[in-house]
Nucleic acid binder design. Structure first.
Lengths: 337, 337
DNA sequence: CTGAAAGCGCTTACAG
DNA sequence: CTGAAAGCGCTTACAG
């Protein structure tokens, strides 16, 4: 049916081994032989069959990336970095989406027979938590992003959410703000980015000797612009008047900022706003958004390092990589920008 | 080494054929047999080897999506839709990025041996053009997005860029605007979204009996927020004062709007702004951005329809699918929003 | 450096 | 409904 290495070998008058060597760029091939093989490949329109190679090698050269959705800029930008870093290492990336905190879909992505199409998986959970630790399949290798789940059977890339949340809040305190709202909190949650960043917020307030005011907690289920706008809207409607907002991600921050401006208040004059993730959009919002920056290239590299080591059987104990952060200051907190 | 169907068959006391039938959900299997097989699978921790299946079937269940970069929201949202639509059809998606108009990378993605990992490719070119038509490989099947390249050997999903650009400009004319700048144009380009949307702009102005003013063309290479801001900035710096902006995409529009506001001008008061693509961000910019909307779900469905038909060998002549559009009106053009 | 051959783990026609 | 077997197209140890 298809043109195979045998056909090429026959045409070029060499063995299949030689064709394989040429196709795989092995050394010690006479230039003349190489040319004959290349010519035969071109004449026959030969294309190497990846499935056959993968079966034989026991590897696919594909890694999976499982995220909630690419329509959230944070995950799109993370995916961008993962694809670029993977490319530099000769790997390609299958992206699966699990939607907004959909337990079943997350489990399905982890356990599906599609798993064996990949050499390993980078998984950013939004629904699964500590109780699901036992459900994590470790084969093919898995790298977890974030701190919703910790398992000593699995590699992790973590992001010091609590420390970063604390730093963001302390930054607002340093500007003299005292009534700081938190937007995007998840009442009752104890793991996951919402809870951890909120915990950092609380530590900062307590460190400054300020009370935790329940009216300054703005719930928001999904972390979208719409949810951010609604959340701050409800707070303002109820007569609460913060002098700063710590939004648990940038999308929430942009939605919140939009709502604040719509109501005739100013940013940062009336309300300073800081976000989290430092997505590209943050630089071009009006005003530009101050945000907590984690290097996504670094997160992608760390995740692929862990995955490749595990795939190669090089790593023994599961590892944890902590990504560093800093605050990118912009107009949403600086009066003179 | 790995647990195979043979192991499962032995354990369950059935033939491999039966195991295969169970794994593939074929009918006509006695429940008792099915249960025995499932039990054996669970006991042995069997996982089907996708490469072996793919080799045997001659299909991988993977489609490739090649776009410039996921860090541009338009492509991230397109990818989101392609993944969702593919998922509903039992397919997964490998995403490759080619960067900002990088000819070599685009060709590499089309011709790489990675191609055979996929059953077909959806390709959104930014560098390749009509002259490259002969370089398009048609096997595995290829679907082209946009109108940079037309080939009667390949399926296309097109977006009526010219008509849509004309409609956007006519909409601004309908609001009484007369000095309409176009932001994001590519001087000298004759194919591709920039040229086609600009052509629509020109048709609209000519239709209204207005001159084409060279000072109202704002060049911008990459279609980023930064480029949009710089482009309108240069125009305003040179003393040109448009009363409306047609930005060739939303990211440009948001950058341009940002720059306009920074300079103390108002939107839409001084300058009305319309974008193109209607990305999710458009709804939450300040002010919300009026934009030309193409349904990305529809584009994704159309592309996968064409691809699946081609993969199945159902389609004869290459097809062209034209996606419909409308204008989503928001505050950036409406005074009372 | 090359040739002949085994085998990766499936699916599926072929007999029964 | 089941069993035994061929073969998808590679890679790679084994002889030479």
């Amino acid at each position: 049916m298809a043109v195979t290495m045998h056909d090429v070998a026959r045409r070029a008058g060499v063995s299949v081994k030689t064709v394989s060597n040429v196709v795989n760029d092995y050394p010690h091939i006479r230039p003349a032989t190489r040319d004959r093989v290349m010519a035969a490949i071109a004449e026959l329109g030969y294309q190497l069959n990846a499935s056959a190679r993968n079966l034989r090698r026991g590897r696919t050269g594909i890694v999976g990336l499982v995220v909630p959705t690419l329509s959230l800029p944070y995950f799109a930008e993370l995916a961008e970095s993962v694809i670029e870093v993977a490319r530099a290492r000769g790997l390609v990336v299958i992206i699966e989406q699990t939607g907004n905190s959909d337990r079943e879909r997350e489990l399905e992505s982890l356990h599906s027979s599609r798993r064996t199409m990949t050499d390993g998986l980078i998984f950013s959970p939004l629904a699964l938590g500590p109780d699901d630790e036992q459900l994590l399949p470790t084969n093919p290798p898995l790298v977890l992003l974030g701190e919703r789940i910790f398992s000593d059977r699995v590699d992790h890339v973590t992001m010091r959410n609590t420390e970063a949340g604390q730093a963001a809040t302390e930054y607002l305190l340093g500007l003299g703000r005292r009534r700081i709202a938190v937007i995007g909190s998840h009442e009752g949650e104890v793991v996951g980015s919402a809870a951890l960043r909120t915990r950092g917020y609380e530590l900062a307030l307590q460190g400054a000797g300020l009370p935790l005011d329940p009216s300054l907690y703005g719930e928001a289920g999904p972390w979208t612009r719409a949810a951010g706008a609604e959340s701050i809207g409800r707070m303002l409607d109820s007569g609460v008047r913060p002098d700063a907002v710590f939004a648990l991600n940038d999308t929430l921050a942009i939605g919140a900022m939009h709502e604040i401006l719509v109501r005739g208040l100013t940013v940062p004059g009336d309300i300073a706003v800081i976000g989290f993730d430092d997505i590209e959009e943050a630089e071009y919002s009006a005003p530009p958004l101050t945000s907590v920056h984690f290097g996504r290239e670094e997160i992608a590299s760390a995740a692929l390092d862990l995955l490749e080591a595990r795939i190669a059987g090089r790593s023994a104990e599961p590892c944890r990589h902590d990504a560093p952060f800093h605050i990118a200051e912009r107009g949403s907190t600086m009066p003179h920008s």
